[in-house]
Design a protein around this nucleic acid. Structure first.
Lengths: 129, 129
DNA sequence: CAGTCCATGTTAGATAAACTTACATCAATT
DNA sequence: AATTGATGTAAGTTTATCTAACATGGACTG
């Protein structure tokens, strides 16, 4: 079992994720509804979140705090996953530009103190790298 | 937050622990009843297990497979915790001897192929050391 | 070999946690 | 003023977990 397996293993009930992220159940379900995350389900249809899911939720929270909307966040997260898959193909310029713009905005926001308490990626604290 | 905090953080419902350890709910509750583990509880009284708890359960499973009984396992776990607290005080001879005997038995069992699939300590796979 | 004990199985009934759906709210846009 | 996006909230249902009690089966013991 490698790191990626560990990070994507369904482990946490929504109750725990609420505590870890300080999001509400409503928020978490809304983000799923809009396909920012896709947690597993138990045989009885209850959500089971992985470290990756929690990481994403923390990132979503940050980005929302910085004024991005769901669509923009979805874009960022998707791009991020592509990058992590190390696909070195020539990226779509439009998307790449958007990504850059969004990242710049976020960075600027940080400079002006809009970034709340650093919501780091949870799994960095738990999963070996 | 340090490693020990992470390892003792209440994260997992009993359903997840059942899958992680391949123990039954009955077994897990029985071990708690006999104070081999002491998982946290939600406000509604449902158990929440930490990495440490899961580690202990895997160890309990191993020791049971090797013929130890609950009392012996409790002894071992207690001793182990003391050791981990780095208490360098002169140990109680009787207990030390028992520990040695039990460990030897376990080792011997291993030699004769009685040790099933190595149920390592879960958190070694998850928590940074 | 009948009786105990230990670890676990099983069942019942109760409670907590989570689910979906629908409607409400409220700030920001249009 | 109307619309939209993100979230709150409530109702009703289903799933997960809880405790308590009794059942079982193998290992030991007198």
């Amino acid at each position: 079992m490698n790191d990626q397996d560990r990070r994507s293993m369904p482990l946490f009930s929504i109750g725990i994720v609420i505590k870890l992220t300080e999001l509400t159940a409503r928020q978490i379900r809304y983000y799923e509804e809009h396909q920012l995350i896709a947690p597993e389900r138990t045989s009885g249809n209850q959500r089971l979140f992985s470290f990756n899911d929690v990481d994403k939720l923390l990132e979503i929270k940050n980005l929302l705090d910085n004024g991005l909307n769901i669509v923009g966040i979805k874009f960022l997260l998707t791009e991020q996953e592509k990058t992590e898959l190390k696909q070195q193909k020539a990226p779509d310029l439009t998307k790449k530009e958007l990504k850059q713009i969004l990242k710049n905005e976020l960075t600027e926001a940080g400079k002006y103190g809009k970034v709340s308490l650093r919501q780091g990626e949870l799994s960095r604290f738990f999963v070996k790298h």
